[in-house]
Amino acid sequence: MKIASWNVNSLNVRLPHLEQWLTTFAPDVVGIQETKMEDHKFPDAVLAGLGYRSVFAGQKTYNGVALLSREPAQDVQIGIPGFEDEQKRAIAGTVNGVRIINLYVVNGQDVGTDKYEYKLRWLEAVHAWVADELKKYPELIVMGDFNIAPEGRDTHDPLVWNENHILTSTAERGALHKLQQLGLHDAFRLHNDEDGVFSWWDYRAAGFRRNLGLRIDLTLVSDALKARAVAAGIDREPRTWDRPSDHAPAWVQLG
């Protein structure tokens, strides 16, 4: 089963890209983030025509998440249980026995701001949710745009993206590490050791052409799925297309 995560940065703009990619890459499940689309506008029929069933939670202009799957998702959860949040950033469902949590993690703006504090509170709520989910669903994947680069080698310049910088600060990386300590493994790092492999590049300063990026889109697999995660990677191809999202899809293959 091939499972992928992609921040499309506006489904209204990127729907043709998503259609093309679903046809060529042919994942079994896709979590998408930043749909930036109200639910009544979600292209459910278009995606059904490509063989995908959809569950989604969106809002106008900002945020928005969805799960697309060849088999209908079961036991769907929208939002983090018990966490009051108007922003549509989390959705979960079970597909072929695998529990999948799709996250659009808060950016945080800058270290020390109110949005940064919100990000840390949000991640604490995610930790509690995932801990509870793992008790019910040992075979679990947490994926999405984490807006955290796990290590220095996941940035184009560790001196710039340091412990005091947003997306790489000590507290953010600590929250990610705490989440992984529940028994989650970065699928990409199970199969790839190299530096300089990224999933996001700024539109400015020819970021993609110069490979000035970050690896912030992650697929985390539980202990029970670690042995089944036979391959993982990042598909750079959609980032080369006309008017692309600034993110590329991250994926994991379960055997």
Results as ranks from 00 to 15, higher is better:
residue 5 S to T: 14
residue 5 S to L: 00
residue 11 L to Y: 02
residue 12 N to I: 00
residue 14 R to M: 03
residue 19 E to T: 13
residue 20 Q to R: 15
residue 24 T to M: 05
residue 27 P to F: 04
residue 30 V to Y: 00
residue 31 G to C: 10
residue 31 G to T: 06
residue 44 D to I: 14
residue 46 V to M: 02
residue 50 L to N: 04
residue 50 L to C: 03
residue 50 L to E: 04
residue 51 G to Y: 02
residue 54 S to Y: 04
residue 55 V to K: 07
residue 55 V to A: 11
residue 58 G to H: 03
residue 58 G to C: 04
residue 61 T to V: 11
residue 79 G to P: 11
residue 91 I to H: 08
residue 92 A to E: 15
residue 92 A to K: 12
residue 92 A to H: 14
residue 99 R to H: 14
residue 100 I to E: 10
residue 101 I to C: 15
residue 103 L to F: 06
residue 104 Y to E: 07
residue 105 V to R: 01
residue 112 G to C: 09
residue 113 T to A: 08
residue 113 T to I: 05
residue 116 Y to Q: 10
residue 117 E to M: 11
residue 122 W to P: 13
residue 133 E to I: 08
residue 137 Y to P: 00
residue 142 V to Y: 04
residue 143 M to G: 13
residue 145 D to K: 07
residue 147 N to F: 09
residue 152 G to K: 08
residue 152 G to S: 10
residue 153 R to G: 00
residue 157 D to A: 07
residue 157 D to P: 04
residue 162 N to Q: 09
residue 162 N to K: 05
residue 164 N to L: 04
residue 167 L to F: 12
residue 172 E to K: 04
residue 173 R to I: 06
residue 182 L to I: 10
residue 190 L to G: 07
residue 192 N to F: 00
residue 192 N to V: 10
residue 193 D to M: 06
residue 202 D to A: 14
residue 205 A to E: 15
residue 206 A to R: 15
residue 208 F to C: 00
residue 210 R to V: 00
residue 211 N to W: 04
residue 211 N to C: 08
residue 218 L to F: 03
residue 222 S to Q: 06
residue 226 K to D: 09
residue 229 A to H: 11
residue 231 A to N: 15
residue 239 R to M: 07
residue 241 W to E: 11
residue 246 D to K: 01
residue 250 A to K: 02
residue 251 W to Q: 04
